[in-house]
Design a binder for these strands. Sequence first.
DNA 1: CAACTATATGAGTAGTTAGTTATATTAGTA
DNA 2: TACTAATATAACTAACTACTCATATAGTTG
Lengths: 108, 108
Amino acid sequence: MNRKNLSDEALALIASRFKLLGEGSRLKLIIALESGEQSVNELVAATGLTQANVSRHLAALTAGGILSRRKEGLNVYHAIADPGIFDMCESVCGSLQKSLGARAKVFR
Amino acid sequence: MNRKNLSDEALALIASRFKLLGEGSRLKLIIALESGEQSVNELVAATGLTQANVSRHLAALTAGGILSRRKEGLNVYHAIADPGIFDMCESVCGSLQKSLGARAKVFR
DNA sequence: CAACTATATGAGTAGTTAGTTATATTAGTA
DNA sequence: TACTAATATAACTAACTACTCATATAGTTG
């Protein structure tokens, strides 16, 4: 791919995906979902965030194509829609480990 | 890696790296640097951003370990310090292509 | 239908961030 | 030393974002 020819529109799309990942609470939710789909309430319990906050972040992640949404009775279950997300986390952790050196213990 | 055991500190580090990439102007700068190091003025010309703005973004990217900085006479040259960045862009473009389907033409 | 549960959303706030303009700093040059 | 060029920074503004509290909506159960 010739990245120099990316349109402003394409660039904005890429940036918005990175931006979705650039927030601790949303990362927490994504990580909590790594082991499988969960209801909103389960995610509230797993992350310690408030229900309103979780609901908002889930809506953003779903709109961005990172999560899927499935309603069943009273519950709404979210799941990872784009597993490529985890490759990206690996990449980031890898380069952080390199640049942080000794302090990288926290990532193991 | 067991992502569920990531400390809040580690999570914040990961998020902050994603956040640096989650902004169109900074992505422009990174892409402009893919072909090699450039001075601040060259980057101003390449991106169409103002000098002050470029200077700020370069400082942020350098502090975040994404760029390196080398001073030579009046000029300051920046370069990609972490080529892993481009793998991440590939990942994002790939999953965007999948999720956007036809509209993904812009990425080619 | 009334009561209850799970989730979403409106409204407001505090904090952050990208951008601008003007100026300061640093280094080379006449 | 005075002048010029390249980069950084201070001060400000406008827009955005995460968060909270309260309430609305949708679905379930008695």
